[in-house]
Amino acid sequence: MIPVLGLLAGLAVGLFLDPSVPVWLQPYLPIAVIAALDAVFGAIRAILDGIFNDKVFVVSFLSNVVVAAFIVFLGDQLGVGAQLSTGVVVVLGVRIFSNVASIRRHLFKA
């Protein structure tokens, strides 16, 4: 429950402060958000599976975000940024759906 409150607090702070993101960082934001979502849903599933580990969560979260941003950066340098972004979104999207399906099975037994 406390992490959920933390998430809400973070949302509130972000909405309230409304910081301006530097332009060079903006292309990486969407993909970083997808990666973060993947890590968060993975953590929720791990909690329900009874195998949650805070260090693994932190490391997977940070590495997900950094690697996703790096892939976009690399794609931009190679001229295939859109394609690589699509690939990252597809892979992470599939993972998010699978994890959410597992969470659903845990919660609703269906």
Binding site: G6, V13, L29, V65
Partner: peptide, 29 residues
Amino acid sequence: PPATSTRTVLVVVLAILAGFLFAVAAQSL
């Protein structure tokens, strides 16, 4: 026990960070 607590400082800090990231991304994009 196989699972650690979800109430460690690391998890809470990261949760706040994730919320912040979502809000900022939504606002700026």
